[in-house]
């Protein structure tokens, strides 16, 4: 009997993965699901870069378009905090400023891709002619922890907003927010992918 349990478990993993991949392929083949993916990923990408301070808007800014490049481009790999990296260029124009940090953009790309995929599959789960359950819509909430990790300078500034004093334990906890978000988003994706049946679409 133990053998059959192992067989069942090992089959379940690939099955879930296969169903998720099939669901993602189904999403990619539909313009409406592609739209949901692109829109939600783009919004998350921008919001994430705002929370880490790479995109900012200064009220009343009227500066001309300007690009400043850092002297030392290897700073792109310098850590500024938990999964936060230094910028190598400042691009500013009017009230907008973008700090070009390639690795921050890469982290944002991964997270926003996962958020977009979660939302696209959630959308498919909603429109397919079968109730999909509440759990489908909770996957995207997994992207929230990563938004809380941002704007750390000397201590995460989100703590100022919520009025909580930092401690060594809290600072350690902040290091886990982005890995946690990735795990939750992947888990959410598998959870929703399992429930979308491409044959029903």
């Amino acid at each position: 009997m133990p053998d059959s349990t192992v067989t069942e478990t090992t089959q379940r993993g690939p099955q879930v993965l296969a169903k998720t991949v099939a669901a993602l392929e189904a999403a990619a083949s539909r313009w409406d699901a592609r739209g949901v993916f692109l829109l939600s990923a783009a919004v998350y990408f921008v919001v994430y870069l705002v929370t880490v301070g790479d995109i900012s808007v200064v009220g009343g800014g009227t500066g001309a378009f300007e690009v400043r490049i850092a002297d030392d481009l290897s700073r792109a790999f310098a850590s500024r905090g938990f999964f936060r990296f230094d910028a190598i260029a400042v691009i500013s124009g009017g009230p907008f400023t973008y700090l070009l940090s390639p690795l921050n953009a890469l982290v944002a790309l991964v997270l926003s891709g996962l958020v977009g995929a979660n939302l696209a599959l959630t959308y498919l789960g909603v429109i397919q002619p079968r109730a999909c359950g509440l759990e489908s819509s909770t996957g995207v909430l997994a992207g929230v922890p990563a938004l809380l990790s941002g704007a750390a300078c000397c201590g995460p500034t989100i703590l100022l907003v919520v009025g909580v004093q930092a401690s060594a334990t809290i600072i350690t906890g902040f290091q886990l927010l982005i890995p946690l978000a990735v795990v939750l988003l992947v888990g959410g994706l598998l959870l929703i992918g399992r429930q979308v049946d491409p044959d029903l679409l």
């Binding site: 301070g53 850092a70 700090l99 500034t157 004093q165």
Partner: peptide, 28 residues
């Protein structure tokens, strides 16, 4: 360095806001 010198992550001094507000507790 590529830094945004128009952005203070803690608040502002003119007027005093955010972390710099008189009653705000320290970070740690």
């Amino acid at each position: 360095h590529a830094r945004n010198y128009d952005y203070d992550p803690y608040g502002s001094y003119d007027p005093r806001r955010g972390y710099y507000s008189l009653r705000e507790p320290p970070m740690f």
